[in-house]
């Protein structure tokens, strides 16, 4: 009954090579299952934590249209977290366990969300850069070998485009506004540009999980390639609204048709990943507080359901 593991692994790799989709009940190597649980749950955690920096400005959004737009965006992010957690659960892990990993600090989430939103312009910068980077990444992941992950990505990609446009529109409006608004916008660009580039992760040779994820068809493109794509798209967008990307070394290479960037400060990235970013502690504290404060609510719903399920059974008897 137990398949010969090495034959099963060869067959699995052949399926991956043939571009087949792996579904929840299919045989998969333990390593594949583990990598996916890690990657998907971290992605979901990022969506949830990502609600906090933007949520910080909902009550101060400067017009009703901006208020509704931002609220809708943050709501979408909760929804994206939901889709991806549910996709992760198909691998045989409970959401409660995943959330526990986030809250206890065991699991990671995207380092970008450890930065503060200091002005309204930060909201524009996040939509433009952070969602922009996410779209590049998620468009690739829409072809991931694991079915539930790919399908969640397709759903998310459809919704994500409005997020980026909203952010860019905010920046364009500020850049064309009062001097104080232009200054606000440029300052936000200065603070969010480099951390956004770091979202793609280090070069694959320096990225511990890249090799396995690529072998198994989860990652279809390298970190540097994705980062380059994002840079090329964004430079033109920045030029169009007359905002300057904070990179003295940024230059166009006509031979490769790429905008080449200066050096990324990977020390900053490592610091933030390891808990020393501006808001790591505060982000986790906020999530822990919401979870703890909500325990009685979750228990109430379960309590009610248990009482009424018992009634339904006794009615039927």
């Amino acid at each position: 009954m137990m398949p010969d593991t090495s034959a099963a692994e060869r067959e699995f790799e052949a399926r991956i090579a043939a571009g087949e989709t792996i579904e929840p009940k299919d045989w998969m190597p333990d390593g594949y299952r583990k990598q996916l649980i890690r990657m998907m749950s971290q992605h979901a955690h990022s969506e949830i934590v990502g609600m906090l920096p933007e949520g910080n400005w909902i009550t101060r959004a400067p017009t009703l249209r901006r208020k509704m737009g931002l609220l809708a965006k943050v709501q979408d992010e909760a929804g994206h977290g939901l889709y991806i957690y549910c996709g992760t659960e198909t691998l045989g892990v409970d959401r409660a366990e995943l959330i526990d990993q986030l809250l206890s600090g065991k699991a990671k989430y995207s380092s970008i969300f450890n930065y503060p939103t200091l002005t309204w312009a930060d909201i524009g910068a996040i939509g433009w850069f952070v969602d922009g980077a996410a779209i590049v990444n998620q468009t690739m992941l829409a072809k991931a070998s694991y079915g539930p992950y790919a399908r969640a990505m397709i759903r998310i990609c459809k919704e994500e485009n409005f997020h980026k446009r909203q952010g860019y529109e905010i920046m364009a409006t500020l850049a064309a506004g009062r001097p104080e608004q232009r200054r606000m916008a440029q300052d936000a660009v200065n603070r969010w540009w480099w951390p956004s580039l770091m979202m793609f992760g280090p070069s694959d040779k320096d990225s511990p999980n890249s090799a396995e994820l690529t072998k198994w068809g989860v990652k279809r493109k390298g970190n540097d390639e994705l980062r380059q794509r994002f840079v090329n798209l964004t430079v033109a967008q920045a030029q169009a609204i007359d905002l300057t990307l904070p990179d003295r070394d940024l230059k166009y290479n006509a031979a490769t048709d790429n905008w080449e960037i200066g050096p990324i400060d990977w020390d900053e990235f490592k610091r933030v990943i390891h808990g020393e970013g501006p808001l790591n502690r505060e982000r986790l504290a906020a999530r822990n507080r919401a979870h703890a404060d909500g325990a009685w609510v979750r228990a109430a719903a379960s309590g009610y359901a248990a009482k009424h399920a018992a009634e339904a059974t006794s009615d039927a008897a």
Binding site: G55, L71, Q75, A78, G79, L82, A290
Partner: peptide, 25 residues
Amino acid sequence: SEWCGHAPILEEDIALANLALDLIG
């Protein structure tokens, strides 16, 4: 809208945001 990101469970973050959006609309 003040609940956004702080609701007791993920499904309720979505639900309360939905209520807020409707009302502000």
